[in-house]
Simulated assay, not measured.
Amino acid sequence: MTVTFPLTGEPLALDLLNTRPAGQDLIADPAGLAAWLELQSGRLEPVEAGAAEVAAVRAVREAAGAALAAVRAGARPPADALRALNQAAAAAPAHRELDSALTVAVRRTGAPARRLAAELAEAAMELLADPRVGEVRECEAADCVLLFLPAHPRRRWCVASACGNRARVARYYARHKS
């Protein structure tokens, strides 16, 4: 199976939530997670994707999705979603290390699945605490559920060359239909 990720490059938490477009789960198995992690290289600590990592990442995605949905609706995030994010972040504490080149790197302790879940939970926390969280939008295309944080207030689609073009073509055909 070839996994195609429809949208990346948004805040990391949104990229994670966008791994579940229209009834699919693009990180349901280690191969899908590995493909997504490869797209996120440089944003996450490298880790080999296995069953434990898939389960940990999907748990964070569920909690982040529930919390973001509540915030976007103007409500408080569910306590169980916040608890899951906090527990994931606490399971692999981060500390800073100084090396001989006098550069500082953030390191985490714990199993790879816990480290990955902690990084993603912290990304979700940062998004939820960001004052711009209310600006997160769902693509306006009828068959798309992807989320994005618009850099421009008039942005309506996740990917203008995909969903935007489909919407424009549909409007054209509707206008010219005889």
Rank of each mutant, 00 (worst) to 15 (best):
residue 40 Q to M: 15
residue 40 Q to V: 11
residue 41 S to M: 12
residue 44 L to P: 09
residue 45 E to W: 15
residue 46 P to A: 12
residue 46 P to F: 08
residue 47 V to S: 10
residue 47 V to K: 08
residue 49 A to L: 09
residue 50 G to R: 13
residue 50 G to K: 10
residue 51 A to N: 14
residue 52 A to E: 15
residue 52 A to H: 14
residue 52 A to G: 15
residue 52 A to C: 11
residue 54 V to E: 06
residue 56 A to C: 06
residue 57 V to M: 07
residue 57 V to Y: 02
residue 58 R to D: 12
residue 59 A to K: 13
residue 59 A to D: 15
residue 60 V to S: 00
residue 61 R to A: 03
residue 62 E to V: 05
residue 62 E to Q: 12
residue 63 A to T: 05
residue 64 A to E: 07
residue 64 A to Y: 04
residue 66 A to R: 14
residue 66 A to V: 06
residue 67 A to W: 01
residue 68 L to V: 03
residue 68 L to Q: 04
residue 70 A to P: 06
residue 72 R to G: 08
residue 73 A to E: 10
residue 74 G to R: 04
residue 78 P to V: 07
residue 79 A to D: 13
residue 80 D to F: 05
residue 81 A to Y: 05
residue 81 A to T: 07
residue 84 A to F: 06
residue 85 L to M: 04
residue 85 L to V: 03
residue 86 N to D: 14
residue 86 N to C: 12
residue 87 Q to V: 10
residue 87 Q to C: 10
residue 89 A to E: 15
residue 89 A to F: 09
residue 89 A to G: 14
residue 90 A to F: 10
residue 92 A to F: 01
residue 92 A to S: 11
residue 93 P to A: 12
residue 93 P to D: 12
residue 94 A to V: 11
residue 95 H to W: 14
residue 95 H to G: 14
residue 96 R to F: 13
residue 98 L to N: 07
residue 98 L to S: 06
residue 98 L to I: 11
residue 100 S to D: 15
residue 100 S to F: 11
residue 102 L to M: 12
residue 102 L to V: 06
residue 102 L to P: 05
residue 102 L to Y: 11
residue 103 T to K: 14
residue 104 V to M: 13
residue 104 V to C: 11
residue 104 V to S: 09
residue 105 A to M: 10
residue 106 V to N: 01
residue 106 V to T: 14
residue 108 R to F: 03
residue 109 T to S: 13
residue 109 T to N: 10
residue 110 G to F: 01
residue 110 G to A: 03
residue 110 G to E: 05
residue 111 A to Y: 00
residue 112 P to Q: 01
residue 112 P to L: 00
residue 112 P to Y: 03
residue 114 R to C: 15
residue 119 E to M: 04
residue 120 L to P: 05
residue 122 E to Y: 07
residue 122 E to F: 02
residue 123 A to R: 00
residue 123 A to D: 01
residue 125 M to L: 15
residue 126 E to Y: 11
residue 126 E to S: 15
residue 127 L to N: 07
residue 130 D to V: 07
residue 131 P to R: 07
residue 132 R to E: 13
residue 132 R to V: 09
residue 132 R to M: 09
residue 133 V to F: 02
residue 134 G to Y: 00
residue 135 E to W: 10
residue 137 R to N: 02
residue 137 R to G: 04
residue 138 E to M: 12
residue 139 C to V: 04
residue 139 C to E: 04
residue 139 C to L: 08
residue 141 A to M: 03
residue 141 A to D: 06
residue 141 A to E: 09
residue 142 A to H: 00
residue 142 A to L: 04
residue 143 D to T: 06
residue 143 D to K: 07
residue 144 C to Q: 05
residue 144 C to R: 01
residue 145 V to K: 02
residue 145 V to M: 02
residue 145 V to E: 08
residue 146 L to K: 00
residue 146 L to P: 01
residue 146 L to F: 01
residue 147 L to C: 07
